[in-house]
Design a binder for these strands. Sequence first.
DNA 1: GGCACCATGTAACGAGTTACATGATTCT
DNA 2: AGAATCATGTAACTCGTTACATGGTGCC
Lengths: 181, 181
Amino acid sequence: MSTPHAILIALLEKPSSGYDLARRFDRAIGYFWQATHQQIYRELGRMVAAGWVAVVEEGATQPAATRKKVYRVLPVGREEVARWVRETRLSADDRNVLLLKLRADAVIGPLGLDKELPRLIDEARARLKTYREIEQRDFSAPTLTRGQQLQYAILKAGIRTQESWLEWADETRQLLDNGDA
Amino acid sequence: MSTPHAILIALLEKPSSGYDLARRFDRAIGYFWQATHQQIYRELGRMVAAGWVAVVEEGATQPAATRKKVYRVLPVGREEVARWVRETRLSADDRNVLLLKLRADAVIGPLGLDKELPRLIDEARARLKTYREIEQRDFSAPTLTRGQQLQYAILKAGIRTQESWLEWADETRQLLDNGDA
DNA sequence: GGCACCATGTAACGAGTTACATGATTCT
DNA sequence: AGAATCATGTAACTCGTTACATGGTGCC
């Protein structure tokens, strides 16, 4: 759903060929966002058709099959990224989409993320509160069976995730407060 | 990809109708695993065809459209869950699939997760090390631009995630060590 | 009577995944 | 000469999502 925007943002950071994009998505970008080369070529074709990106073929003398095509984002595409960041309403579970938005903000921001992050923080706090209540209700017995201990471990994974994300989000919110005047 | 197994595990915990399953996936289960009622009905149909689950219609006198169908896991299905837990090789990114496996282990375990978790821990440690290296290489300058600070925040999100997962995983590993004799 | 909830499904679409396919260049 | 890498794509399939569809029960 956000794959085309992930590609656009990657192209904003650095104009690339489909092949180069695929490598970037295999390395650094791939740590939090995946896209195969098939997806990338498909989306690049669509985005050229939509007028979001332009393509320049390098080395016109080489045969077509090997010719490298370098894609770069056009103003319309840039606007589309800004629109997407502003208008796509995330939920607290869309952590990697938020990181994607942050990357967009880093290249062409500020894009108003200081409005969205506090909402996500509230949502995460509410979720954490729910988890704490389940913890009290279901796992406060002095001894737990093996099965219960494992179920408790699953809940703890959720609690840890929320807590550490909240810490990070609070730090990051301050960054955005300073940046988005 | 693991949706049918998620449903099987939920049914092992408690035999349910499609509707009840949908509600469970909307509430507690839904915190880390999603499935819509359309998916659920589709998979239940397939799993009956595969002989993994059996269905009993309640209230034979009621009209067919409203009759509640209660599904329960057959021995073959139970074996399939055990096989899936043992044979599906996860990567460190498949956090929620690991939680799913833990849930399976809680109902019909031990299933040998004490073998898999250490491998995932090693993988996460290696990932964390890579992040730390990127941190040293790209973000140790005394002052950073707004864009760099945001990129650093993205990296920090990854670092925090790995660190807190590793803490949790280490605690959980001890649980499994005791359990899987 | 109408609204919310219980309970089951089908159909169409879009996106991601896997497999297939071709050809040039560079290194051993 | 062969393997790895560069570089581009097509085709088939499966899964998840959205929309559609039906009908009963219980409450105000």
